[in-house]
Structures are given as structure tokens and as C-alpha cells.
Write a protein that binds this DNA or RNA. Structure first.
Lengths: 200, 200
DNA sequence: GTCTATATTCCGATAGAC
DNA sequence: GTCTATCGGAATATAGAC
């Protein structure tokens, strides 16, 4: 279903910006670098976009949407609540690259702009809400202990992923990420009624 | 015990750099901004330091050492293992500012330099090890379930803090940080032998 | 729509006076 | 030790030809 025809100029600009924001952040990404990666001239960019920030907004929105789809494909899958959380946490990731959206929260110009921050807020808000739903559903089905606070548990799960990236990048090694994920999964497993886990 | 005499030029440069790295990151911090905040001329800076990266190294080392002392004052305190972890997690923080060291992991120039990354690696390595010790000690004392994996639990605890900052900054609201902390604390509490918690 | 000039400002560092 | 002057290059954008 993925189209194979050559990409338009505008599309190439957005994709180049997505990559560069991930690699270098907003402050570290120059229009010149975007143009070179996209293989277009300066005039093209300022024809389609008013400048760096508008282009970044398009790129951030696109990336956030992609992450949302990816997370939903795990969290909305089959299996018990634990299994779906585990599927999300154990998903293949290029850990040392970090989270392309989480990274933006460390960029001053992004967080200070209501417009640029909005997609981050929406993505993580959605994510915490979605995990909360999964946990609450697990409780209703009797899979998870009734004492568990779904919203707090969801925040912890989402935080472990984002913090795992930080620890891994500091160590230049994915191991701390994997350890953090195993840690929170083991804690969550202790809340499970026996026989409700497929994973592990 | 804190000295009150006016700070030397070198010291003012280091402290200004610490602040600016926290606020703007490495890429976003210019020598000019450092000089202005420190109230010194350009010549002074290049007299005491070879350039931006050497100054950043001094500032990062200093900040990492300060964070280590602060964490140790919680983790090395009195009480059960759970209490000490809780003291660390519930410590007063200016959440929306984020972690001054965790932030550096999102800075390309920092992570790519072995020298600049080293203090981050050391701090988070120490932190995970220290929390691991606390959890293992709790197990030996019979406070915590023997099934708990101390290293994995420690990684999860450290990750929740770093990820909590990310979620809070995305939302421009400390609430997700607090929720994540409560979430992981509740999961940890479920591993505790009754009567071993002072906190909560 | 896309290109090449050009403008202005800042970055990071060096030179050299005091 | 500290200051000001200066430098080569990059960042971000505008102007205007094609």
C-alpha cells in the first residue's frame, strides 16, 4: 500500500525535517541542513513554508501521528491487559536513537511555543489515557488487582519508556532501557491474577 | 558553612554555564551568553578555559556531583528500603525545569563526545547501582519480596524520574511526573512485607 | 515553483593592548 | 588576568531572476 512514486518537494522537506529533528533537535537543525538532505533549493522551502518553525510543526505533527499509530497497534492488540502493555514495552525500538517526540521536550524553543508543544502534549496525553484504559479494562475483567490505580500505573509505564531512553543514551548502551522495562513489567506481573499472562 | 565572599571569575563562569546548560542545553548555549551572565569579558573565559567544551565539561561534572550528593542524602537516609526510595522519589523538585543531567543526553554534541558523556554515564550508573543496593538490602532484611530483581527495579525507579520529567514538560504541568512517581511507588509497596513502610 | 544572490546577525575563537 | 577588536563561517531570511 506504500506508494512508490517519487515524492513531491513538500513531502521531501517534511521527511527530511522529521529525521533531522530526531537526530539534532530543533535548535540543532538548520534550514540549510534540511534543504541539503531534501535535495531542494532555498526558494522551494520558503515557497511552501513560512520558515523553520512552520516546517518543524508539520514534521512534529507527522511524527506524533506515526508514533500514535505504532503504539495503538500494540495497545489495541489481542490478549490480556498485561500482554498488551508488554507488547508495547517490548516493541522493537532503536533505543539509542531515543524518542523523536520525547526529545522535543528538551528543546527550549519547542516547549516555549504553544503551537509546537501541542502535538507533544496531545501524544503523551493520549498515550497515558490509552494505557489507563487498558489497565482499567484488565481490572474489570478480573485480570488485575483492584487496588491498582490505572492512571498512576499508566503514567509510570509511559515514564519508564521515556526515562529508559535517557538512561540508555547516557550509558551509550540499550541495556538500562531493557532493565527498566523488565523491572516495571515484573512489578506489574505481581498485580496479575494467575494465568492472565501470555508474555513471559 | 557556605562561603559568602564574592566568587572568583572562574567560579562565576562555571556556575553560569551550569545554569545555561540546564536552561538551553549545550547546542543552545553560546559563549557570549555565558559571559554576559557571568559578567566577565571574553578574554577571561579563554584565559581560564580552552573553549566552550572545556567549560561545559567543568559545569557538567559539577552538576553531576551535586545531584549525586542530593540523591545520596535520600537513599542513604534512615528507614526501610521502601522509605528511602520514596524519599528519593518524593523529593522536592522543580519538575518543569527537568533534570540538568538527563537533559544532556538529548544533546548530540554531548553524547558524541566521550569526555562530555562520561559524567552522565557515571552519575546514572552510580544511581542505578545505589538504588539496587537499597532494594537488595531490603530483601536481606525481609522487607521486600525475594522475587524482586533489584537491578531491574532500580532501573525502573530511575527511569520513572527521568521519564516523568519528559511527560511533565510535554504537558507543561508537573502532574504527570507526580502520577508516575505514585504509580511506581504503589507497585513497589505491593512488594513490601506489611509494616515496613513509614511513608504513605 | 524553483533557483541563485544577498543581507544581517550570531557563533566560536584569536590577537593583542593594558 | 582582563579587556576590546577582529575574523571566518554558519544561521535564518529576503529579493528578484527564470
Amino acid at each position: 500500500m506504500s506508494t512508490q512514486e517519487p515524492l513531491g518537494t513538500q513531502e521531501r522537506l517534511v521527511r527530511s525535517t522529521q529525521e533531522l529533528l530526531w537526530e539534532r533537535g530543533y535548535v540543532g537543525t538548520s534550514p540549510k541542513a534540511i534543504l541539503e538532505r531534501a535535495g531542494v533549493g532555498q526558494g522551494s522551502m520558503y515557497h511552501h513554508f513560512s520558515g523553520k518553525s512552520e516546517l518543524a510543526l508539520a514534521a512534529i505533527r507527522r511524527t506524533a501521528e506515526e508514533l500514535k499509530q505504532g503504539a495503538e497497534s500494540c495497545l489495541g492488540g489481542p490478549g490480556s491487559a498485561y500482554d498488551r502493555i508488554a507488547a508495547y514495552l517490548l516493541r522493537e525500538r532503536r533505543v539509542l536513537r531515543g524518542c523523536p517526540i520525547g526529545r522535543m521536550t528538551q528543546d527550549r524553543d519547542v516547549v516555549r511555543s504553544a503551537e509546537l508543544r501541542q502535538p507533544l502534549d496531545e501524544l503523551f496525553g493520549w498515550l497515558r489515557g490509552r494505557i489507563t484504559e487498558v489497565l482499567a479494562e484488565g481490572q474489570r475483567r478480573g485480570e488485575l488487582a483492584a487496588e491498582l490505580d490505572p492512571a498512576a500505573g499508566a503514567a509510570a509505564v509511559a515514564a519508564v519508556v521515556q526515562g529508559g531512553y535517557v538512561l540508555a543514551r547516557a550509558a551509550d548502551d540499550p541495556a538500562p532501557f531493557d532493565a527498566a522495562v523488565q523491572g516495571v513489567l515484573a512489578l506489574l506481573a505481581a498485580q496479575c491474577t494467575p494465568g492472565t499472562r501470555t508474555t513471559d
